[in-house]
């Protein structure tokens, strides 16, 4: 058999590889380009439907300045940071722990794993409504169960602090399975012989995890972290049905704000500008992950 040098192969491969990338690139960029460009154009224009049917012209960065100075916007950013921060930390810890605890291919572990990813299956709007009835102060199951062990449950959805905790709980309940699933797949792909070698060398389970598995898992875990963070920041349906942003402005998040501006109040300029502010933040997060991943290689 004639053996060609590996470099020849690499050059020969390039058209193939480009062909691999093109369909995805086309679908994502071609279809989404116009909406994004449109939104970018709106961000620098004055257009509120209650004032005018057409955009009212270029206003530069005025929309951005207005949004950053807006009390409601700032409050919604603060709420978002609290909710997402709390939820994502809980999800990462619980998700990775559960991924380790459910390793294995016995039917029992498979059943447990399938059970644990179920919350993710529920439509967020239904999950929000379900938890609204569960967390009901008077007629809710949660406070009823708490009362059985002698605890007087809080006014989950009517107190500003507990409402934030409720939203965090819902997010954690619904999305820990995401971390479990991705981390589980990542752990499963760690070559078994690596761990065997460590075991033979007499390393403790904890040390094996810390020095062998964790470094291997880090890129995927970071990715999961950023995904969960941005996803959680973007979540709308569940907050809409659980608290509707209330009581008052207590759980009014950034996405809720953008939604209200864009599709309820039809302040297109303001909604576009706040979306771009959000994207500036998202970009920094994504860039940070790239930077971390780079360091590992």
């Amino acid at each position: 058999m004639l053996r060609k040098p590996a470099t020849w192969h690499r050059r020969h491969d390039v058209p193939w590889l480009i062909a691999f990338v093109l369909p995805a690139f086309f679908i994502v960029v071609a279809v989404q380009f116009y909406p994004l460009a449109y939104s970018a154009a709106l961000a620098v224009q004055e257009w509120s439907l209650t004032k005018s049917q057409e955009p009212e012209g270029f206003v530069g960065l005025e929309n951005f300045v207005e949004e950053l100075g807006d009390e409601t916007f700032r409050r919604s950013v603060r709420n978002s940071v609290l909710i997402t921060g709390g939820a994502v930390i809980l999800e990462m810890i619980l998700g990775v722990c559960l991924a380790y605890l459910t390793m294995g291919s016995s039917w029992r572990m498979r059943a447990v794993r399938t059970t644990l990813i179920l919350p993710m299956v529920i439509a967020p709007v239904a999950a929000g409504t379900l938890w609204r009835i569960l967390l009901n102060y008077r007629a809710g199951l949660v406070n009823h169960l708490l009362s059985l062990i002698g605890i007087q449950g809080p006014e989950w959805l009517a107190s500003p602090d507990w409402a934030i905790i409720s939203v965090i709980l819902l997010d954690t309940w619904q999305w820990t399975p995401f971390v479990l699933l991705v981390a589980g797949a990542a752990i499963a792909s760690i070559p078994g012989d690596l761990l065997e070698v460590a075991a033979i060398d007499g390393a403790s389970r904890w040390k094996t995890f810390l020095y062998i598995e964790l470094p291997l898992l880090t890129p995927l875990l970071l990715l999961t972290l950023v995904f969960r963070m941005l996803e959680s920041l973007l979540s709308l349906d569940s907050i809409y049905s659980l608290t509707f942003g209330g009581p008052g402005y207590s759980t009014y998040t950034m996405t809720f704000y953008i939604y209200t501006q864009g599709l309820r109040n039809f302040n297109f300029g303001a909604a576009a500008a706040s979306s771009w502010i959000f994207m500036a933040f998202a970009s920094v997060s994504i860039a940070l992950v790239f930077w971390f991943q780079r360091k590992d290689w």
């Binding site: 107190s159 500003p160 209330g246 009581p247 008052g248 402005y249 207590s250 009014y252 209200t260 109040n265």
Partner: peptide
């Protein structure tokens, strides 16, 4: 009230109701 004006009002009254 357009929805925006309505919402500004009811969210603030709600904060009043919960004593914030």
């Amino acid at each position: 009230w357009v929805f925006e004006a309505f919402e500004i009002f009811f969210r603030n009254t709600s904060e009043l109701v919960i004593g914030s």
